[in-house]
């Protein structure tokens, strides 16, 4: 494995960033982008095999609110609360995914079912306003005296946590890529019936990747909330965050491990540039350009930013997946 050494080197370099006394603002952007990148990486693990979810906001929401509720109501440290809520989100993913995959809910149907799931979590959080604060959002209790167990750190401290979580995501991607599951999912994305006929357990393979993907999204969602120390049903769950995750993955390209992260860096960077450029005077210009770019990306760069650097020989699995083959008259 000649990849391990360079990877560790890059991680070490990234970890050393705070020592360069970067401006806080830059570090803030990096933390946000890498956490989004983690969620995008998780999403792309499904998305690159044609399993398009518009409901990853459900998992980020469960991760964020699970963690925050445990801390605020029962004083459970995020160090314990995050793993628990990640497991909860994974379970939700399984609960949603298993019947979907058993009953062959695919394509548009799957996308819309997951969209509903994301909305359920968002509206549930809004409706349960007695404990979640509803649409006004909530803040995890501050605990300056026990900052470590409350996971309330300075920016550089949080950068290291972010980096660790992100590295887990990349590692999981690599493990998936090397596993038989990737081959199986690739076959499934080409033709489910054919895959099943050669002995691939279609529903089970899809379930595995969904659970992993949900867990990564939940981890990202929980850390994002913990970093901001603020939760809100619109920004922690629902269609908005779901689409943001999807856009990141698409913008970066889903066929290499770093694609989704690059996409996240790009979208966060773009949002910041637009925000700085237009300021508060022209509210609405940012989403307008954001949406326009999304459309242009899909129209003209469907393989994402990383697609620009990809050579022909390196085509990840799922390259030709889910393209529509037009029905023919006869043969």
């Amino acid at each position: 494995m000649n990849k391990i050494l360079p990877s560790i080197l890059v991680l070490a370099l990234l970890a050393g960033l705070p020592l360069l006394s970067l401006p806080e603002y830059l570090l803030h952007l990096l933390i946000t982008a890498f956490l989004l990148g983690l969620a995008c990486t998780g999403w792309a693990m499904m998305g690159r095999f044609g399993q398009v979810s518009f409901g990853h906001g459900a998992f980020t929401g469960i991760g964020a609110y699970g963690m925050a509720m445990m801390w605020n109501l029962y004083g459970v440290s995020p160090w314990i609360g995050i793993p628990i809520s990640v497991v909860l989100a994974a379970a939700a993913g399984a609960l949603l995914g298993w019947p979907c995959f058993r009953l062959r809910v695919v394509g548009h149907y799957f996308a819309l079912v997951t969209l509903a799931a994301g909305e359920i979590v968002r509206i549930f959080v809004t409706a349960a306003r007695e404990i979640t604060g509803g649409s006004l959002g909530m803040t995890p209790h501050l605990a300056p005296e026990a900052a470590f167990s409350a996971m309330q750190f300075s920016k550089s401290g949080f950068w290291w946590i972010t980096l660790g979580a992100w590295a887990i995501g990349i590692l999981v991607w690599h493990l998936q890529n090397r596993s038989m599951s990737a081959q199986a999912l690739s076959a499934i994305s080409e033709d489910e019936d054919a895959a099943a006929s050669i002995g691939i357990r279609v529903a089970w393979e899809k379930l595995k990747v969904t659970v992993v993907s949900a867990a990564l999204a939940a981890l990202a969602g929980a850390l994002m909330a913990q970093y901001r120390l603020y939760l809100n049903p619109e920004t922690s769950a629902g269609l908005g965050i779901s689409l943001q995750i999807v856009f990141g993955a698409i913008a970066g390209g889903m066929y290499g491990p770093l694609g989704p992260t690059i996409g996240a860096l790009f979208t966060i960077g773009l949002e910041e540039v637009l925000r700085v450029f237009f300021g508060t005077g022209l509210i609405g210009a940012a989403p307008l350009i954001y949406g326009l770019l999304l459309v242009l990306f899909v129209l003209f760069m469907p393989r994402g930013l990383m697609g620009l650097f990809e050579s022909r020989r390196h085509l990840g699995p799922g390259k030709s997946s889910s393209t529509k083959t037009p029905q023919r008259v006869g043969t």
């Binding site: 996308a111 509210i283 609405g284 326009l292």
Partner: peptide
């Protein structure tokens, strides 16, 4: 332009239009 593209791309592009319309309405 996306009729022969994978369904995900079609849905995403119209998702982009969603942002465009929301943003445009906010602007105006």
């Amino acid at each position: 332009p996306l009729l022969t593209a994978p369904p995900i791309n079609q849905v995403l592009a119209t998702g982009g239009v969603l942002f465009v319309l929301q943003g445009g309405a906010t602007l105006v």
